[in-house]
Amino acid sequence: MISDGMADVLRSLRLGGAGDPAQACARALRAEGVSLSLLVGADRTAEPLWWHPELSARFEELQFTLGEGPGPDAVRTGSPVVEPDLDRVRPERWPALLPAAREMGVHGVCCFPLGIGAIRVGVLTVLCNGDRRMSEQQYADTTALAAVLTGAFLNGDRRGSRRGEGNVSGLGVYLERPSGLHRAVVHQATGMISVQLGVAMEEALLRLRAYAYGSERPLGEVAADVVARRLRFDDDVSGPYSPDSGKG
């Protein structure tokens, strides 16, 4: 059974009156942070919709930059990945993410995929607090929240007024597909690197991620440099470099 706090949040979400939904969810779950991402594009990239606090956004960017972590695993398997204490996770499971997450101040992470069967539409990420555990009540509340969000996505819940509910926007107001995707620049940069190196898109993305990780920069920031022709990936000998001119 869900808690009274989560029941209030779900009721408020349906009525479109939760204010900041991520903050409301984090408070109800007594979590360090909460984020919701929608899977978009042919490669099902996780595009953040809302988060609280900024630490949640930074952790989502870290997972995206490295291409590993509980979020990608949850999307791949279709099952929750519950790791409330990252110190207990085997180092070889997420070799790049674990030390970076600890340095960031993330103690534990629990990710719940949104979807039914083989269908995946998003992922809900909960950052655990310093207790480094997830209680049965927190698990039940998070599962209920994930189920409601999944239903809203799959049912195309975008605007409550379309169903004759007047000015009440409903849950769909919080699930609008973003008009300007944050990850679009990464896809564009990947295509450019694919052409520059003559490799498949998958390998081009790996090269981009490797460079971002090695230079300790966000993937989106490096991708923006590629798109702006401030950075090129021309060969395997000299590696990526900044051209003197703006020509591609």
Rank of each mutant, 00 (worst) to 15 (best):
A144L: 08
D131N: 12
N129P: 01
E202Q: 03
D131G: 08
L49A: 01
P21W: 07
R183D: 05
I119T: 11
K247N: 08
G19T: 02
G170C: 02
T125V: 09
G248R: 15
R132G: 00
C110N: 10
L36T: 04
V106R: 03
T143D: 14
T77R: 03
P21H: 06
R76V: 00
M192F: 07
R11M: 14
D157A: 14
G122L: 09
A7Y: 11
P178Q: 02
L66S: 01
R58Y: 03
G156N: 05
I2S: 09
E54C: 05
L10Y: 07
C128Q: 08
G214V: 00
S12T: 10
R76A: 14
V237W: 13
P99N: 06
M192E: 11
V227C: 01
P218S: 07
V81L: 09
A31M: 00
G69P: 04
Y211H: 15
E136A: 15
P84R: 08
E203Y: 10
D235P: 01
G130A: 15
S194M: 05
H187M: 10
G191E: 12
M134R: 12
Y139W: 11
E202K: 00
S37V: 11
S242K: 11
N167R: 15
R76W: 10
E136R: 15
Q137Y: 07
V89P: 03
V82R: 12
A31I: 03
R88E: 15
D131V: 09
C128N: 06
L114V: 06
W51P: 00
G170E: 04
G67F: 05
A228E: 14
N167V: 14
E165A: 08
R230I: 01
A57T: 05
D234N: 06
G198N: 07
P218G: 04
I193T: 01
Q188N: 09
Q63T: 04
Y213Q: 14
G248P: 14
T142Y: 10
G19K: 03
V227Y: 04
V226C: 02
M134T: 09
R90D: 12
L13V: 01
G69A: 09
L208C: 00
E83R: 11
E176N: 10
L98A: 02
P113S: 06
S242N: 07
Y139S: 04
G151R: 10
V226L: 04
R207A: 11
S161F: 08
E92Y: 12
R14M: 13
Y211I: 00
I2M: 13
G180Y: 12
N167M: 14
L86K: 07
E165C: 02
D157Y: 14
P113H: 09
P48E: 07
V121P: 06
A42P: 02
S179C: 06
A144K: 05
T142P: 03
G220N: 00
R14I: 08
A24T: 10
A57S: 12
V226M: 04
S161T: 13
E32N: 12
E103S: 13
G19M: 02
A7H: 13
G5P: 00
V123R: 03
F59Y: 15
Y139M: 09
G69R: 08
N155C: 15
G248V: 11
A57R: 15
F64R: 10
L98I: 04
R209Y: 04
V81P: 06
L10W: 06
D141V: 10
D8K: 11
L38P: 00
A210V: 05
R90W: 07
P84S: 04
P53Y: 09
A212K: 03
A101Q: 01
I116F: 12
D8R: 13
